[in-house]
């Protein structure tokens, strides 16, 4: 151990400000990078889920339209008969 007391440790032989500035800034940047990278996973998953929902909705609408068109056609056929 190089330091005799906690205040000596914080003081860093008079260079405390510069040492703790360096360690603090580095820790802050790395923590932000780490957690944003980790959180990116759920973000991607949710985006793809949204995309999937949109596709499903479009497909349903297309099928519904097709059905309606068919039944309309059937109705006109019935009417002419």
């Amino acid at each position: 151990m190089q330091f005799n007391s906690f205040s000596e440790f914080i003081n860093m032989g008079g260079y405390g400000f510069y040492v703790w500035l360096s360690f603090g800034v580095s820790a802050l940047l790395l923590i932000i990078l780490f957690f944003s990278s980790k959180a990116g996973h759920q973000k991607v998953i949710n985006n793809i889920a949204k995309q999937k929902q949109r596709e499903d909705k479009l497909r349903e609408a297309r099928e519904l339209r097709k059905q309606q068109a068919n039944s309309a056609q059937n109705n006109t056929e019935h009417a002419t008969n």
Partner: peptide, 19 residues
């Protein structure tokens, strides 16, 4: 931060080296 010896010229500011 705690156990490495301080530099004989730069004192404890040298600990920035480790990052």
């Amino acid at each position: 931060l705690l156990f490495a010896p301080a530099d004989y010229q730069q004192g404890d500011s040298f600990r920035i080296f480790y990052i």
